[in-house]
Nucleic acid binder design. Structure first.
Lengths: 109, 109
DNA sequence: TTATTATATTGCAATATTACGATAAATATT
DNA sequence: AATATTTATCGTAATATTGCAATATAATAA
């Protein structure tokens, strides 16, 4: 035991969960917010902004990238990371549908 | 090490992260979807619907409750669990703002 | 070529999560 | 009271995550 029983849930449920899980860490939220704040997205200075060591930041970036939340491309000696709008849209819409469904339901609590 | 450095991030960043983290598991997504689907929210049958043992489901419910995503109240022998609209609103709005901010930015990738 | 700079990877220790059997607690039913 | 039903908790094993020092890799600059 200890491993999530991924195969017992729908592909959609797993997709939603993995996106939200990737965002479920304050460092990764901070990274996303920083990517938003910076005008151009050559983001070699994320390490200087966060209270974490370079390998740790690199690992968080990798996780965000694996989840599909950010895109990265080599830009000379630096890496250009920026937010992938599509994945953000997807979870925003997912939660929006949830909210809307909730509004049409009687609530006992 | 191994523990998240919560105190190095803002309260807001931690709040967002903890809500999204709580949703970042397919079982908990499935629970939320089930709570939405069922008309009234006397939900003693979640265990029968999910491919997980009763203690596991109970633990997931506890996590959703701790995060503030669901509310639970004793209803005789059963427990009435249902979604807390406020927390759902919060993360939906958070992601919405992120999306909106992104739209006004030049995107290099 | 030899630094220099920037990012990634490896290896590892500390901690957290996931899952479940066994058991407890609380209430309802007989 | 005794039994059944429902949910929670405890204990524990397996696995995952977090964080960083050390090191590797890759591109640029001197």
């Amino acid at each position: 035991m200890g491993a999530t029983k991924t195969d017992h849930f729908s592909q959609r449920q797993n997709k939603v969960a993995s996106l939200l899980k990737a965002l479920g860490h304050p460092a990764r939220i901070a990274i996303m917010e920083y990517l938003l704040k910076v005008n151009d997205c050559i983001c070699g200075d994320i390490v200087n902004v966060l209270p974490l060591a370079q390998p740790t930041v690199s690992q968080h970036l990798k996780e965000l990238k694996n989840a599909g939340l950010i895109k990265g491309s080599i830009e000379g000696t630096a890496i250009c990371y920026c937010i992938d709008e599509k994945s953000l849209d997807f979870i925003h819409q997912y939660l929006g549908t949830m909210k809307q469904t909730l509004e049409n339901k009687p609530n006992c609590c």
